[in-house]
Amino acid sequence: MTDTIHHHLTDPLLMAYSAGTLPEAFSMVVAAHVSMCDECRARLGSFDAIGGSLIDGAETVAMADDSLGATLARIEAGATAEPPAPRKRRRGVLPGPVQDYVGGNLDAVKWRPVGMGVKQAILPTSRDASARLLYIPAGAAVPDHGHNGTELTLVLQGAFEDESDRFGVGDVEVADDSMEHTPVADIGQDCICLAATDAPLRFRGLLPRLAQPFLRI
C-alpha cells in the first residue's frame, strides 16, 4: 500500500504528534496514516529520537527526598503508566486507531445522512478538534467544504479529486483556511475518509479551550 501513497503528513504535524501537543482528533489522523505508511512511520521514529535526545540533554529539576524509595514502593504496589505498546495490525478498511474509536470496523459505524447521499459519523474525541468519518457516494461532491482553521482528510477507501490533485487510499490532505476547493469522489467507488478539523474552535490556549461551546459541524 505504501508505494501508492503520494500525499504524506507534514513535518509540523509529525513533530507535534511526537511532542504530544496535537488535539486528539488530529492525533487520530496521524496514527491512522502512520499505520498505513512506512515512510511516515520512519519519519515519526526520527522525531521521537529528537525528543529522546532533547530530554537526555535537557536541564534537570531535583526529585523529592527519597523519591527513589517511593518509586520502588510504587513498583511493588504495581500501579504504573502504560508505555506505548505494540499494536497488532487488524484487517479492514479502517486502520486500528480508528477502529478503537468506532468499536469495530466499517459495519460498526453508525452513519448519519447529511444529504445528497453523503453520510457522516462523528467520533468521540476531546473537544479542541473534531473527527468524523465521511461516506461520499461515487461521483458526488464533498458538501459544505469551507475551511476554517486546519483540516486533515485521510482517504480510507476510494479516492477524491479536487482542482489540483488526486487523493487515493492512504493519502492525507492537509488544508488550512487559505484553501478554497471542491473535492469530488472518484466515479469508480464510494469514498470513505477520516476528516479532522479544529474549525469550530479558534483557540489552542488552555483556558479558552475549556470555555468554548462545541459545535457538531
Binding site: 504530544g20 488535539p23 486528539e24 492525533s27 487520530m28 496521524v30 496514527a31 491512522a32 502512520v34 499505520s35 512506512d38 512511520r41 515519526l44 506505548p84 505498546a85 505494540p86 499494536r87 497488532k88 495490525r89 487488524r90 486502520p95 486500528g96 486507531p97 478503537d100 474509536y101 474525541t125 476531546s126
Partner: peptide, 9 residues
Amino acid sequence: QQRPEPEDL
C-alpha cells in the same frame, strides 16, 4: 486526552 497510537507493521 487519549493518544491514538499507530498499529505496528
